[in-house]
Amino acid sequence: GYELNLIWRSILNIFGFLGNGRVIHLLGFHIEKNPFTTCILNLSIDDFGVFTALLRGISSGLSIELFISTHAISLYLLTAISVEKCLSVVFPIWYRCHRLEHLSEIVCALIWAISILVFGIYHFLISTESADFDIVICVVHMINSVFCTLVVVICTVILFIKVCCSLHRRQRGKFYTALLLALLFFLIFGVPLSVIITLQYLLADINIITALFGVVSAVINSSVNPFIYFLIGRKTTHRPREPLKVVLERVFSDKADCREDQSLPATTDSMMMTP
């Protein structure tokens, strides 16, 4: 009862708030921005929001709605990150020449705007007890659990193949590894909640244990990313108390990633300039 609830809240505070809060602070104010740090910053803000929604438990309707909405946003953000990284490695020339300067900011803003709009519709339909509520929510979560998940799976496979193929030529940057792990953990722990919610509206026969499994999995997913960044970015030969800022810079400002993504375009440019 009370002791389990206290342990649960302690885990939320330590792993959810502190981990994501520290990443938000460093990426927002102390680390140089690039297209991927912008998306990762938004992802950390959203993961922080997941724990904020759970701060008073999931017994109230509004907390449940906020929790489900923030969880969905994390899926959209990871989908955007994985698609952009795939484009940068599969079509490097096109990516370098045609990518909009502020594409990451635009995409993240659209994700938040659309998600807030959907949340408003979601809450309105619940409050008015509209007959269209089940249909709208079922469609939204089917998109989350089927379309977005399929895109993430495809991008994960492509990035994994790229990493494996590059091992014979040069060492990949740390961001590839961190992103692959984040995507893998999301497929394991993040996707089940969307699937369970979809099945609930389709079958209306989801027991409390299954629902609890989905919630716990989503909480694990929202707390694991800061640890992935730390484990991938740290140097085992360094002193154990290496500043987290240095660790994150090593992951998100990794030179190997930049060289790999720009090597082909740079070579092509030099060939075009040669008479």
Results as ranks from 00 to 15, higher is better:
R234I: 02
G16K: 05
T177R: 08
S74T: 08
G57L: 07
L103G: 15
L183P: 07
L150K: 12
I208S: 15
C39V: 10
H168E: 14
N5G: 04
G16W: 03
L78D: 14
D46W: 00
F119Q: 02
C39P: 08
L55D: 07
L187G: 08
N5Q: 05
L4R: 02
E249N: 03
I135D: 15
V195S: 11
E84M: 07
L117C: 04
L18K: 11
D257Q: 15
C258V: 13
Q200F: 13
C97K: 09
I73M: 08
S69F: 05
A80M: 06
D254N: 09
D261Q: 09
H30N: 06
I161P: 06
H102W: 06
V146E: 01
I228Q: 02
L103V: 13
D205G: 10
D134S: 14
H71I: 05
M272E: 15
H98I: 10
E101N: 09
Y122L: 04
V151Y: 09
L167P: 02
K235Y: 00
V139I: 09
L75H: 11
A109R: 12
V139H: 08
S74R: 08
M142Y: 11
P192G: 04
I206C: 02
R56E: 13
P243R: 00
V219H: 10
S69N: 08
I7F: 05
F124A: 07
H98E: 14
C39S: 12
L12R: 13
K85T: 08
C258S: 15
E242G: 00
L78S: 13
I64W: 12
V152P: 05
R99Q: 11
L183Y: 02
D134R: 14
L12Q: 15
L87M: 06
G28A: 00
Y122M: 05
V139L: 06
P240C: 06
L55I: 05
